[in-house]
């Protein structure tokens, strides 16, 4: 599984905002750094297919060599994690995970229990998402994304809401799960520590390599 951004340009009212090309190999992490408002999140929206109509996108997004640029979000199979875990408040933890499972998954319940165990959250299935700690929510959100069987993973500053100690642990947990599954990962952050921990290349929205 590889994620390739082929001469991607995003412009608003004719003014270019983002311009880059990149190739992310399975299990690798590419980090995109820059101050807030520079267009990082806009790029992520473009990759998953949720770019607001005020922006104009050119270039191609290739997943495993296949052009997905014209597909709607739900057919791209690109998973995303936001800073606020964005768990659905009306569903239980298990309900959130079940929402992500493809319809023909065998043993749905057993797989949810496995995912919870993998995240160190045994028995959390019936819990209300609103009662979880920030770290627990982040782990549930990751397992939910993975249960949908994505072919690439985008991280939109998913560690920013966590304190330093928990941050390092969650970060390692996410990168390890992605490596095990061979997912290409695109991390967007303004934190140099996140970028160092990711271990891969670091780019700015202009497509140029950044030194940490």
């Amino acid at each position: 599984m590889t994620l390739e951004l082929d001469r991607i340009t995003i412009a608003r009212d004719g003014a270019p905002l983002v311009s880059l090309s990149a190739r992310i190999e399975p299990g690798q992490v590419l980090t995109l750094m820059g101050p807030s408002g520079c267009g990082k999140s806009t790029l992520l929206a473009a990759i998953i297919g949720a770019l607001p109509p005020v922006f104009a996108l050119s270039g191609r997004i290739l997943l495993e060599g296949r052009d997905v640029t014209a597909l709607p979000i739900e057919h791209r199979r690109i998973g995303i994690l936001f800073q606020e875990a964005t768990l659905f408040p009306h569903l239980s933890v298990a309900g959130n995970l079940a929402f992500a499972q493809p319809r023909r998954t065998p043993d749905r319940g057993a797989r949810i229990d496995e995912a919870l165990a993998e995240a160190g959250l045994e028995g959390f299935g019936p819990r209300d998402p609103a009662t979880l700690s920030g770290g627990q929510r982040a782990r549930v959100a990751l397992m939910r994304t993975l249960l949908a069987e994505p072919r690439a993973l985008l991280l939109d500053e998913p560690f920013s809401g966590l304190d330093t100690d928990r941050r390092a642990r969650i970060r390692d947990f996410v990168f390890q799960r992605a490596r095990e599954r061979g997912l290409p990962v695109l991390l967007v952050t303004h934190d140099a520590e996140d970028a160092r921990a990711a271990g891969g290349h670091v780019l700015g929205v202009d497509g140029l390599e950044t030194d940490l």
Partner: peptide
């Protein structure tokens, strides 16, 4: 974003 997440999960 709840819709975006839902779509990205395949819905």
């Amino acid at each position: 974003r709840c819709a975006t997440v839902g779509h990205s999960l395949g819905a």
